[in-house]
Amino acid sequence: MENRYELNKNLAQMLKGGVIMDVTTPEQARIAQEAGACAVMALERIPADIRAAGGVSRMSDPAMIKGIQEAVSIPVMAKCRIGHFVEAQLLEAIEIDYIDESEVLSPADDKYHIDKTKFKVPFVCGAKDLGEALRRINEGASMIRTKGEPGTGDVVQAVRHMRMMQSEIRRLVSMREDELFDAAKLLQVPYDLVKYVHDNGKLPVVNFAAGGVATPADAALMMQLGAEGVFVGSGIFKSGNPAKRAAAIVKAVTNYTDAKLIAQLSENLGEAMVGINEQEIELLMAERGK
């Protein structure tokens, strides 16, 4: 199983510097692949629509996910509810490339996350801070993303979560070795993970940004803050010209420090998704699953 975990962490390595896009139909999946997505997230409704519709949100119809698997050659991810290990078993049964145990869906368990060490397929999980990230890794996640606040088109929370993680990482790096034991206690995570971060200055798995990314500048902002790649959910297919916006975000992630290029990429993209400000949100998805 140890070997499988390494292979799963390695797949995340291959996604680095890339953009993972939410898609709801095979047609959208093809547009995303054509625009340069390094993977797609297959789901019935994008987060903005989940937010608008309300009610319980669950794993997508396997037939719909299979349709997307057949439409593209890049990796296909899908979401299951936090703690819903049977939904995860179903996704594994249809040979999904990555499972997102996601706060975007309604949690199925308010205490336990899925024991991801029991699965052969890899998992990505959301985190707001270093403690959450390391707890998910301890449970077997082989990739981490910020939670951000999905479906809002507002990047503020992804920024907050990425800054928090990076700042806590820097703090661990600067500690004396004998201080790490107490740090592990305060973070509520195992000592060996704290030691890894102290020694390496980064998480033991790849760390992407997610939640509220809507423009090429948003994506580049997250990369400059230390993300290794970006998830874009509602931001693409809720905008005026999805194909053009998607391709622009892909290039902005590759050349995230080239302001001249990103300025060009940002020209005439059409309307961005309208978005909801932080103060206007009724449901904070990021508070699900700690």
Binding site: M14, L15, K16, G18, Q33, G36, C38, I74
Partner: peptide, 10 residues
């Protein structure tokens, strides 16, 4: 390594 479709396009 990575995704050849993405790299080729970029």
């Amino acid at each position: 390594g990575g995704e050849s479709t993405v790299q080729g396009k970029l």
